[in-house]
């Protein structure tokens, strides 16, 4: 019995070690790379869609949360923002503010 337990926890430990680097959710960087396709980096020359580099973090949280929760009107962002948790929105805002 005791041996079996040790074996089991050994296997569980091995699994843990193996999957430890895997994240349960995409990083802000991975998400943000999708954003810039429409929003553009500085040099892409967007005319209408707001640029996100150096975007004030507090305002981005307010915008994305508002789009997601239906308090802010949008043509497209209300559909996209529903994908993100509060934590992801915070992380995205921090990511762009630091650019």
């Amino acid at each position: 019995m005791r041996t079996q337990r040790t074996v089991l926890s050994g296997a569980a430990l091995a699994t843990l070690v193996l999957v430890a680097p895997a994240q349960a959710a995409p990083s802000a960087e991975a998400i943000a790379r999708n954003c810039v396709v429409c929003h553009g980096p500085k040099e892409a020359g967007q005319l209408e869609i707001p640029k996100l580099a150096n975007y004030p973090a507090r305002k981005m949280v307010e915008m994305l949360t508002g789009f997601r929760d239906g308090q802010k009107e949008a043509t497209i962002m209300n559909r996209i923002a529903k994908a993100f948790t509060d934590e992801q929105i915070q992380a995205l805002a921090a990511h762009f503010a630091a650019q």
Partner: peptide, 9 residues
């Protein structure tokens, strides 16, 4: 208009 920005991006 957004479509054209998407294209540039």
């Amino acid at each position: 208009a957004y479509a054209f920005d998407w294209y540039r991006g």
